[in-house]
Each structure stands twice: as C-alpha cells, then as structure tokens.
C-alpha cells in the first residue's frame, strides 16, 4: 500500500487524479450497477401504472393499427403476408431501437445525482437504458410470436439470424445513444429533438412499406439508413423465411462503426466533465 503510493507520489504529471483503491471501477462493478439501474427503471416505471409491462407492446400495436388504416388509403403492398404481421414484425425491432435511443439520451442528465456524488463508469447509464429497452423488446417479441402462430407463418433456420440482428440494433442504438447523451447533457436541444427525429426516422425506414417499394432513384440514398438493412433483415428472417440481404447489412454495419467512431471518443472526452454541468 505505502509502496505503490510512494511510487505515484514521485511522479510529476501536470494534472491528474490517482486512486490506488480498485473498488471504484472494473467490469464487476459495472455489471452490478447496470443490473441495479435496470431493476430500478423497470420496476419503477410500471409500479404506478395499471397496464404495467403491457405498455411494451401497446406502442407497436397502436402503430400497427394506424398503419393498417393508412394502408387502406395509400395502397401499400405487403408481399402476400397479412399486412398486420408485415408491419408488426418491423415495428417490434423499431420500437426497441427508438425507445433505446430515447432513454439513452437523457440517461446521464437523469442520473446526475449519482454522477455528481460518486465516481462511476459513465457509460453505465446509456448501457442500462438500452438493457431496459431490451426487456420491453422481449415482452413485445412474445406478442409477435403469438401473432406468427396465429397467422401460421412458416419459419425455418433463418431465425438463427435474430441474435445477430438484435445485436446490431443494440450497437447502433447504443452508439447513437452515447453520442446523443454526450451532447444532450450539455445542450438539451438534442434531447428535445429526439421525438421528432425518431418520427422522421420511422417514416424513412421500411417499417410501414417494404424496401422494394422505394423508387429506384432514391434507393442508394435510402440504403444509407442503417435501420433499413436491419429492419429488412428482421422481416426477411421472420416472415419471408430468407436470409437477410448481406449487402444492406454491411451498409448498416459500416454506418454503426462510423457512429461509434464518432460518438464513443466524444462521450469519453466530455464524460469527465459531466459532473460540472449537471
């Protein structure tokens, strides 16, 4: 104990903070804290509601009803699949993605009291937000599975793609969430703008319509949307019984990596000053 401190006392850095105790960080602490935060969010969110966790699937269900109505007006093809299932299979991953981002962005500001008090790994708040959304995804998936049984959708080995697709959604959402949390903690405009952004993004993604319906001249632009590849992928493996379009998935992957390349260093560098502005 005294030895290690003696060594570090001798160093001459211009500025720094050094604590020899290791209880502060590490993967175990991260996991414990994330678990507790998820438990708090999940229990706390539904404790005073009548419908409780049903809200996890009520949101995509409501969109499904609206889209089914819109379809009658706009005449959107659904490739021979019942339209309700066609759009719901996309709405479930979409809702997860959208909720994860909406929870991530304000997560740091919402946990300011913890951040200002004790040294914790800052990433734990966005991560906990995404995990909380994953519980909702799980609940909604049960409804989706029930629907697939009801419509007797043939399924096959392609379902094995699902973990990868979910993982890609998680990473994209977390990457976006980190970036938005980093900026949003300083300038709240970012947080206020998210509902609008997500509405826009929903319409720009193949949730209501199949990607094949997008006019050819816009297609290359459309494919830049990382959620396009992921959602089409979900629909492929769930209701079309085919593997995802690898080219579109690669685009999604590239965009995800780009997002991380920007958001992660940004979050790291500004996160140390979070306590100063909260």
């Amino acid at each position: 104990m005294s030895d290690s401190s003696g060594v570090s006392f001798g160093q001459t850095r211009r500025r720094g903070y050094c604590q020899t105790g290791t209880r502060g960080n590490g993967p175990r602490r991260f996991a414990e804290l994330a678990r507790a935060l998820v438990a708090r969010e999940f229990k706390g969110m539904y404790r005073r509601s009548i419908l409780g966790p049903a809200w996890a699937f009520l949101q995509p269900l409501a969109y499904m009803v609206v889209f089914t109505f819109l379809r009658g007006v706009l005449d959107i093809p659904s490739e021979g699949v019942p339209y309700a299932l066609f759009t719901f299979s996309a709405l479930v991953p979409w809702t997860f993605f959208s909720n994860a981002i909406s929870r991530c962005a304000p997560s740091v500001a919402a946990n300011g009291s913890i951040l200002k008090k004790i040294s914790v790994p800052r990433e734990v708040f966005p991560v906990a937000a995404v995990i909380t959304s994953m519980i909702d995804l799980l609940i909604a998936s049960v409804i989706l599975a029930g629907m697939m049984l009801w419509f007797q959708t043939p399924v096959g080995w392609t379902l094995l793609w699902i973990p990868l697709l979910v993982l890609m959604t998680v990473f994209l959402a977390l990457g976006m969430g980190l970036g938005l949390a980093a900026v949003g903690t300083y300038k709240h405009d970012v947080i206020y703008g998210i509902p609008f952004l997500m509405q826009f993004w929903l319409l720009a993604s193949p949730v209501m319509y199949p990607a094949s319906e997008v006019p050819e001249q816009w297609r290359s632009f459309f494919d830049l949307n990382p959620m396009a590849g992921i959602i089409e992928g979900f629909r492929n493996v769930l209701i079309r019984g085919t593997a995802p379009d690898t080219e579109m998935l690669l685009v999604s992957l590239t965009v995800t990596l780009l997002v991380w390349g920007l958001a992660w260093p940004l979050f790291r560098s500004v996160s140390q000053y979070f306590a100063d502005v909260l």
């Binding site: 500025r15 604590q19 020899t20 040294s119």
Partner: peptide, 19 residues
Amino acid sequence: AGVSPPSAGQVWIDGTLFP
C-alpha cells in the same frame, strides 16, 4: 471523489474512497 477532474494539480488517494 474523482467525479470532476482538476484543471491543474494532482490528487493522490491511497486506498479506496467513499463519498
């Protein structure tokens, strides 16, 4: 507490800290 970084200077803490 290690919550906010100093602009200059150094802080050493030998052992664990709890605020």
